[in-house]
């Protein structure tokens, strides 16, 4: 997120802030706070996230009856501190989501761009792969890969990175082709501009908008996918905390110990909120047609 939100120069930050409305400012502040908490998790977490207390399981958050002093958000199904686990989970989940989304963007975007620019057999091959990917349930592909190579962290990152590559490819290729058909591109071509130059000068600026939207969507999508994999028992290995693993395990306790799910679910909500608001904002700013308004 920093990469996206970081201003190009110190002065730009102030300008950005001035332009933002209240919701966008809130999202920006929230994003920075979440990022800081994720980075500083080992310093701010009150407890070791994996330290169990078997005889103090499922204690409610502070203020409720039976609450355990010091455990502000209560304890989970093994008596671990939920606040500490949430902080470490946020750290790992953000890392996984960013890594996955970047891999997907680079992989899918490159393939889509190549397909759109070169056309012909290359395009047919790429789009064939896209079609095949779309047609086979991604959950199953993830399942295969995780079962085959073991559900370790590196494998999980690769699986999450594969998520959505075909959407980037489709979008980039479609936009590329739409633009290639436009008169000014034909003019540029006629003027002797090569494909790389056309891509850099004419396509990239027009691609930013749909890609940013897709990136934010897939960032949240990956957070949710990771939780679905946990639901199926294929997420990170216990006792490692991710937000997905926490809600995946916690769902069974919703009737009697809802706080186990609420804390990570709200954290997921905050992450997706910040990402999507910022995504929309960046998109609107990047869109030349909307800027004058």
């Amino acid at each position: 997120m920093t990469a996206l939100a970081a201003p190009r120069a110190p002065g730009a930050l102030a300008r950005l802030w001035a332009e933002a409305d209240a919701v966008q400012r809130a999202a920006l502040v929230l994003a920075l706070i979440l990022l800081a908490l994720a980075l500083l998790a080992p310093l701010v977490a009150p407890f070791d996230p994996n330290a169990q207390s078997l005889l103090a399981r499922m204690r409610p958050p502070a203020g409720f009856e039976r609450a355990r002093p010091g455990h502000w958000l209560g304890t989970d199904e093994l008596g671990r501190d939920i606040l500490s686990r949430c902080l470490f989970a946020l750290r790992l989940t953000l890392g996984l989501a960013l890594a996955g989304a970047v891999i997907g963007l680079v992989l899918g975007g490159t393939l889509g761009l190549i397909a759109g620019l070169l056309g012909g057999r290359v395009e047919a091959a790429v789009m064939g792969a896209v079609d095949a990917q779309i047609a086979v349930p991604f959950t199953l592909i993830a399942l295969f890969v995780l079962v085959l190579f073991g559900n370790t962290l590196p494998v999980l990152v690769i699986v999450l990175g594969l998520y959505g590559w075909e959407q980037y490819a489709r979008i980039v290729r479609a936009e590329t082709r739409k633009l290639m058909a436009m008169p000014f591109i034909e003019a540029a071509r006629a003027a002797g501009a090569g494909p790389v130059r056309i891509a850099r000068v004419h396509l990239m600026p027009n691609l930013v908008s749909p890609l940013v939207v897709q990136f934010t969507l897939s960032l949240s999508g990956i957070v949710l996918l990771e939780s679905t994999l946990s639901f199926l028992g294929l997420g990170v290995q216990p006792p490692t905390a991710t937000l997905g693993a926490m809600v995946g395990v916690g769902r069974d306790y919703m009737p009697n110990a809802p706080w186990i799910v609420i804390a990570p679910a709200v954290t997921i909500l905050l992450v997706t909120f910040a990402v999507q608001i910022l995504g929309d904002w960046l998109r609107d700013r990047a869109d030349p047609r909307l800027r004058p308004r």
């Binding site: 995780l146 079962v147 073991g150 559900n151 199926l232 028992g233 294929l234 290995q237 216990p238 006792p239």
Partner: peptide
């Protein structure tokens, strides 16, 4: 010890 959770 290390846990290895898998549906197999």
């Amino acid at each position: 010890g290390r846990l290895n959770q898998q549906p197999a």
